[in-house]
Design a protein around this nucleic acid. Structure first.
Length: 602
DNA sequence: CTGCGTTGTCATGCG
DNA sequence: CGCGCATGACAACGC
């Protein structure tokens, strides 16, 4: 949307920008896809190997002993490789500052309030958080928008494929799996990032999870260190909970997606894409506006585009709001075309008015043919597409064929026409012809003939002012004749002006429709990209969580017993070390950490 | 006959 | 002020 506004503010038509712009977009898309592919082959055994290495890694002096020496509350351990591994799998590229970003996985903290049935209390953190309703609305809007886009795209034969992914497409594969995927949908990742904090803070503290969302949920920046990006959209998973029985959400471990070799990584991936499976359903079974609107009401969505817009081919009014700002872009083309017409009208042609000849006319129609939707209107415009008045007047007999009300006709017709109305004419071939030709005459031509105007109406109308005055001066004309001539000229000019005006209006409408389609495509693309980002993000978080579990599970106290997740937590320190600290201490630090962003906002 | 789309015309405003 | 143009509104016309 912003793009469109910007486009218009620049005063240039979209046609000018679109090519290079879309090239760039496609490049970005490619890069994003590549990034997503790279992250997929997550080494399932990586965590294990990592943990093994951690026990012996003394490289940085941050290693931790496999056996914690007696009674120590804090145990330093190295997660350097863990971080490195995560960084390598981070879809956001080398910009990721992972030592800071790992703190963003605070929702992965084993929570004391978790149900006791979970294994070691370690599996749950990432999967059982509470979801802020704040994001639900946003997510729902996005979802509705995507569905809307797809309903439109499916209903019309467009060259652009949005979610009609090929059978091998990872996304679609996942989406179709989603409804049967028994995983916890209540994933809370709102407090995903605390990046940029130099102070020691609790890693995986449950307290942090209750933090209010610190950022806006507008766009998803590419830079992972931006905490708002992580906050923005992870509520989407809760959407799945709306549609699938809650009992499906309880069990954690399950099959991984085909493209997700690691068992843990696949979990969230499938869960994350639940909402997209709805989109697939919308495509395959047809979008149900009633159901959607009910759900929409449930979330009080204020999605920018109305659902009806995708179903009503002539819903120009519904799209006017979103495209009203783009009228200036179409007006630019209009002005250019009007200038051509004005310059053309200055040149005199023997017969027929020089009408609005827009170069964009054929272009419009051609593009409209391949455009998304609005096919009925296209046919309509085809039917009423403007005939060139000059062409028409060159073929006067054609005027009788079509639905053409023009009163222009060839000068030769003047000779055989009479003033009395056609109904008074008698039978006879000549009279019939006269009748026919008489019908071709405009009222003004009849009047001109009646007033014995010595030159054709065409000259009256189309001659430049100077030549026109010259012509008038050549003849001795009465005041009535001069008045009629002036009226004829005025009406003729106005007639052409009206035709041009209507043509412009049609062009404007077509341009606006194209703009709407472009914007809808852009919106769909952005939503797609957003989903991709979310998928990557969730995978990353899943990996961090599994690493946390792996590391924590391998910790042993002086008696060789594992630490209780309810009593201890791992904490990431600013210097790169990871500490094992009591929960109470971690909670305190988490609360301190929580207040800081709040104060900053004030 | 009615509805609708097309076209011409008029009135008006603007440059 | 006249002119040309643009455009909304209206009416006529044909299907």
């Amino acid at each position: 949307m912003n793009e469109a506004v910007l486009d218009i503010d620049l005063g240039a038509g979209r046609e000018i920008f679109d090519y290079s712009h879309r090239q760039k977009e496609q490049d970005v898309d490619k890069e994003l896809q590549d990034g997503a592919e790279q992250e997929d082959p997550w080494p399932g055994e990586g965590a294990e190997a990592l943990a093994r290495n951690l026990l012996v890694d003394g490289e940085t002096g941050e290693s931790f002993p496999a056996q914690v020496p007696g009674g120590e509350d804090q145990t330093a351990l190295s997660l350097e490789e863990c971080l490195r591994l995560l960084e390598a799998t981070c879809p956001f590229g080398e910009n990721a500052e992972f030592p800071a970003d790992i703190s963003s996985v605070t929702e992965a903290v084993p929570s004391e309030s978790e149900p006791p049935g979970l294994q070691n209390n370690l599996l749950s953190p990432l999967l059982t958080g509470t979801e802020s309703p704040f994001d639900l609305e946003q997510q729902w809007q996005d979802l509705m928008s995507i569905m809307e886009m797809q309903a439109m795209e499916v209903n019309t034969s467009t060259s652009e494929i949005l979610y009609d992914a090929p059978p091998g497409d990872p996304l679609s594969t996942n989406y179709s799996l989603a409804p049967n995927t028994p995983i916890n949908q209540n994933v809370s990742l709102h407090q995903a990032s605390l990046g940029g904090c130099s102070q020691d803070f609790s890693l995986f503290s449950p307290e942090v999870e209750s933090l209010p969302v610190a950022g806006s949920s507008t766009l998803l920046p590419l830079v992972p260190s931006n905490s708002t990006s992580l906050n923005s959209t992870f509520g989407s998973t809760n959407l799945a909970g709306l549609f699938f029985p809650p009992q499906l959400n309880g069990t954690a471990n399950d099959t991984a997606g085909p493209e997700l070799p690691d068992p843990l990584g696949g979990l969230l991936d499938e869960a994350m894409l639940d909402e997209i499976s709805l989109m697939d359903l919308a495509i395959e079974e047809g979008f149900n506006p009633v159901q959607a609107s009910q759900l929409e009401e449930e979330f009080d969505s204020d999605s920018g585009l109305s659902l009806d817009s995708s179903h009503s081919p002539s819903s120009l009014s519904s799209s006017e709001g979103s495209s009203s700002s783009s009228s200036s872009s179409s007006s630019s083309s209009s002005s250019s075309s009007s200038s051509t017409s004005s310059s053309a009208s200055s040149s005199f042609s023997e017969e027929g008015a020089v009408g609005y000849s827009s170069d964009s006319e054929t272009l419009d129609l051609e593009e409209a043919e391949g455009a998304v939707g609005y096919q009925p209107e296209y046919s309509k415009f085809c039917r009423m597409s403007y005939q060139d008045p000059a062409q028409l007047s060159c073929l006067p007999y054609l005027e009788h064929v079509g639905h053409n009300h023009t009163y222009n006709m060839a000068p030769s017709a003047l000779d055989s026409a009479d003033l009395p109305p056609p109904s008074t004419l008698k039978k006879g071939s000549k009279e019939k012809q006269a009748d026919f030709l008489d019908k071709q005459m405009s009222r003004d031509e009849h009047r001109a003939r009646a007033m014995k105007i010595p030159f054709t109406n065409d000259k009256i109308i189309n001659l430049p002012v100077e030549e026109f005055n010259e012509l008038l001066s050549k003849y001795q004309l009465s005041e009535a004749q001069l008045s009629l001539i002036r009226d004829i000229r005025r009406r003729g000019k106005n007639k052409m002006a009206a035709q041009n005006c209507r043509k412009r209006k049609l062009d404007t409408i077509l341009n606006l429709e194209r703009d709407v389609e472009d914007l809808q495509r852009d919106k769909a693309r952005l939503l797609r990209e957003k989903v991709e980002f979310l998928r990557s993000l969730r995978q990353m978080k899943q990996k961090v969580q599994s690493l946390y579990q792996e590391v924590f599970g391998r910790l042993r106290d002086e008696n060789g017993r594992p630490y209780s997740p309810s009593q201890y937590a791992l904490q990431y320190a600013g210097d790169g070390s990871v500490l094992l600290i009591p929960r109470t201490l971690a909670d305190q630090q988490a609360r301190r950490q929580e207040r800081k962003p709040k104060d900053r906002r004030k």
